[in-house]
Design a protein around this nucleic acid. Structure first.
Lengths: 131, 131, 131, 131
DNA sequence: GTGGTCTAGACCACC
DNA sequence: GTGGTCTAGACCACA
């Protein structure tokens, strides 16, 4: 598995898990329909609690990025991905707003901030063609 | 005061306070050297506890955005603002990364994401000239 | 626990706590990676409030001497310690200056003052080899 | 007057005043028996409250560094300076201890710390011969 | 069971 | 009147 956790970080482990799985899907490391490790084995691999993995999976299921079946296990949502809903846009903007304000206050120019955003996005996507 | 809190939100109150003050400074609603409301009166105005305001003020103080004086009260850092440190860039990128991944997964194109960032930044700055 | 507080002292309790923990780390009584008592139990042992301990722990965390985990509790920073930054040197010198002036005024010679400093430092370190 | 206050500093103003007067005596800028500015005029010069200056003067009087007369005003203790009492040594050591621990934890060597102390002391004294 | 957050209310140092 | 510190007690998120 490609997941790396920072147990020292102050961001909750389940959040880190969610982020990394989302990134995995975004960059194509996790294909639609692909199987994710069972909760128990992933928890064991990462040396974390079973509930933590479960929480992450459930959050992603609620967001429509994963499907959880009893028998089949957990797979990446095949076919139709959630898409950009209004709720998502609002949430995205609210968080960007906070980051932009912090950047602006420290004197980072609009162009630099936009460029930073673009380059971060590109970093994630860049490997997508490869799989 | 221009601050609006969502007491139901899962983001801590003091974090919301910090964000809004940073935005206030970024957009020029709060000028360098300008006085902020005393801890107690702001707490009362917002219907929250004095310690919550205190925590927010102190966080901003240790980020170099505010100065806290014993008798004088709290003012926006006059003169030299913190600037873009390496630590800040790293933190910014980490958070942008999470947002970019979520956006990419939902099919938001690179150009749209970058444009979104730029427009959010511009929204904040836009009133700055007016003070 | 090896901590002794003077509740009558004019130096804040949390400062005394910080100082004693730093000394504990310096002398090796607290090893890197070692666990510190949970906030609540230390507070109870010392007969002080939990928030006071919390404040001390958080100060040490933001100085990079402690790590605070949600479930695991608090540990001494394992591996790389902060190091002597310029900010630290400046702060050290400012405080030494005040002490040196007071000593000089009372006729304590330069050599005695330097020797005093050295011996205090040595007192702290002296047990370090023993762990 | 040679006194410079940092009103932004988190160390109380009266403490800064005390420190600077002590330094002034240590370096010889203030000679034994020399007259200090009257409370009111010093307060006005520095742009601070009258009580603040008063508090500083009284602390120094208690320590035996100043003499306060109603008519004559305030003068530097002529002749016999306090000397190194046991209480002073203890207080000095306690404060040095805190600094030494902080330095040791950050990897500053004993020799460096002692040298730092000596050089700070020398900085203060260095002008003494000159007056 | 751990730390994180919030509330309520008190006293003190500083100016 | 300002922020700083401390206490007491509560609920929640995390693991």
């Amino acid at each position: 598995m490609f997941i790396e956790l920072d147990l020292q970080s102050e961001t909750p482990i389940y959040t880190q898990l969610v982020d990394q799985i989302v990134e995995g899907i975004a960059c194509g490391a996790l294909q639609p329909g692909e199987q994710l490790p069972p909760i128990r084995s992933l928890a064991e691999d990462l040396g974390i609690n079973l509930h933590t993995v479960n929480k992450a999976y459930n959050l992603l299921k609620q967001e429509g990025l994963l499907q959880v079946h009893r028998k089949t296990g957990v797979i990446v949502q095949p076919g139709e991905m959630p898409g950009v809903t209004e709720a998502f846009e609002e949430k995205l903007r609210r968080q960007l707003r906070s980051l932009a304000a912090a950047a602006a206050v420290r004197g980072m120019a609009e162009e630099v901030f936009a460029q930073e955003s673009r380059s971060v996005y590109r970093d994630i996507i860049t490997n997508r063609g490869g799989e």
